[in-house]
Amino acid sequence: MRRLGWIAGLTLLATGQVMAVSVWELSRVCGDDAKAYCDGVGYGDAMQACLDQNYRSLSDGCQAIMDRIRAGEGVSLF
């Protein structure tokens, strides 16, 4: 079982899928900013666009998350 975990991890690394912001991380770090600037916008792409539009007003932590997304990291459920 441990070997299977390593194989899965290496496969994800090789395909570039490891670099992703999890929804949990995004909501934990950017939750207050989302509520302050994007309340009622919705989720997914709409929320990401709203946070991006309000980038200069976001907390440092949320700006760091948005920088990662801007650099090409996807947003993952896990």
Rank of each mutant, 00 (worst) to 15 (best):
M1C: 08
M1G: 14
R3L: 15
R3F: 13
L4W: 08
G5M: 09
G5E: 12
G5V: 02
I7Y: 09
I7E: 09
I7G: 10
I7V: 15
I7A: 13
A8Q: 10
L10Q: 05
L10F: 11
T11P: 00
T11D: 02
L12R: 05
L12P: 00
L12N: 04
L13T: 08
L13A: 13
L13G: 09
L13V: 15
L13C: 07
L13M: 14
A14G: 12
T15S: 11
T15A: 08
T15W: 09
G16I: 03
G16V: 06
G16D: 09
Q17H: 10
V18R: 14
M19K: 07
M19D: 09
M19A: 10
A20L: 10
A20P: 06
V21Y: 07
V21D: 08
V23Y: 06
V23C: 12
V23P: 14
V23I: 06
V23Q: 14
V23A: 13
E25V: 00
E25K: 09
E25R: 03
E25Y: 00
L26K: 04
S27M: 14
S27I: 00
R28P: 11
R28V: 08
V29E: 15
C30N: 11
C30V: 12
C30W: 07
D33S: 08
A34S: 13
A34T: 04
K35Q: 12
A36Q: 11
Y37K: 01
Y37P: 00
D39Y: 14
V41C: 02
G42I: 02
G42N: 04
G42M: 10
G42Y: 01
Y43A: 10
Y43F: 13
Y43R: 06
Y43E: 12
G44M: 07
D45E: 11
A46F: 04
M47S: 08
M47D: 02
M47E: 14
M47R: 15
Q48L: 15
Q48M: 09
A49T: 12
A49I: 11
C50D: 04
L51T: 05
L51D: 13
D52I: 02
Q53G: 14
N54W: 14
N54M: 11
Y55S: 05
Y55D: 07
Y55Q: 04
R56A: 13
R56F: 12
S57L: 05
S57M: 02
S57N: 15
S57E: 10
L58D: 04
S59M: 08
D60I: 05
D60Q: 05
C62V: 06
Q63F: 04
I65E: 10
M66L: 15
M66W: 13
M66P: 13
D67Y: 05
R68A: 02
R68Q: 15
R68V: 01
I69E: 03
I69C: 01
R70S: 12
R70P: 00
A71D: 12
E73S: 08
E73G: 02
V75C: 05
V75A: 03
V75H: 03
V75G: 07
S76E: 11
S76Q: 07
S76N: 09
L77P: 01
F78G: 03
F78A: 02
